[in-house]
């Protein structure tokens, strides 16, 4: 009862003068302005953080040449690039080249500008490229060392997820061996039974052998004999 009375008193009209409150229309306008400003800020931030959003670098093999366009086979897709008088050409030796030097079968890096919806791609700079020099032929493998040669810097690794395969891995002075704590360790710390991650490249001198670029030895345990 008392509460009801208090409530009635509270909601009855009061003679006090309250400050003018903003109308709903004004609030809506402020909200709209806020949203517009937020949108503009987002667009500007996107432009600043990703200024080359419409610029792309496409690597591929030329499979077709027309009067004003070339078609590339790139990463299992075909891409048609429009060419005009402003397009520049660079040969394998990084010298200026020309449209008439562009042939089917050449590997190129095409620096292009595309429409926002990617509907048209304009070639700005066509660089003839040797794809072998830019290929990433590294292999990453995790597994256990099963055998270490006592006569040569070679060990054998069985991958954790493919026990039927052997990797013959060679280390050299450029091979970097690390503990899980990122401490550089000596090649001699590698032992049979150790679990490792290895970054490998095919050894061009020895068939069926990989060269270790970097190894992380998960079973490394510091001992007085191991050299950091």
């Amino acid at each position: 009862m008392i509460l009801l009375g208090l409530l009635a008193l509270a909601i009855s009209p009061t003679p006090t003068i309250s400050p003018p409150s903003p109308t709903p229309t004004t609030n809506d306008e402020i909200q709209k302005i806020r949203e517009v400003v937020q949108q503009k800020v987002k667009e500007k931030l996107k432009q600043i953080t990703n200024p080359s959003s419409s610029k792309k670098g496409i690597v591929g093999k030329i499979i077709q040449i027309d009067n004003s366009q070339i078609t590339l086979e790139s990463q299992n897709t075909t891409k048609t690039i429009s060419i005009d008088d402003s397009t520049t050409y660079v040969d394998l030796n990084r010298n200026k080249s020309s449209w008439d030097k562009i042939k089917i079968g050449q590997d190129v890096l095409a620096l292009v500008v595309s429409d926002n919806d990617d509907s048209k791609v304009y070639g700005k700079r066509i660089v003839i490229t040797d794809t072998k020099s830019i290929a990433n032929n590294k292999t990453v493998v995790i597994g256990k060392i099963v055998d270490i040669s006592t006569t040569s810097p070679i060990f054998t690794l069985i991958p954790s997820k493919n026990k039927n395969t052997l990797f013959q891995i060679k280390t050299d002075t450029k091979s970097e061996i690390y503990s899980p704590q990122n401490q550089k360790i000596n090649t001699s710390a590698l032992k049979s039974g150790h679990k490792i991650i290895a970054i490998l490249t095919p050894d061009t001198k020895m068939n069926k052998t990989y060269l270790a670029q970097k190894i992380i030895d998960f079973d490394f345990s510091p001992s007085p004999t191991s050299k950091p």
Binding site: Q75, N137, T139, V141, P202, T209, Y210
Partner: peptide, 11 residues
């Protein structure tokens, strides 16, 4: 994409 490697195993 595949690349040339001496081992027959694909990772």
């Amino acid at each position: 994409p595949t690349h040339q490697a001496p081992s027959p195993t694909s990772f």
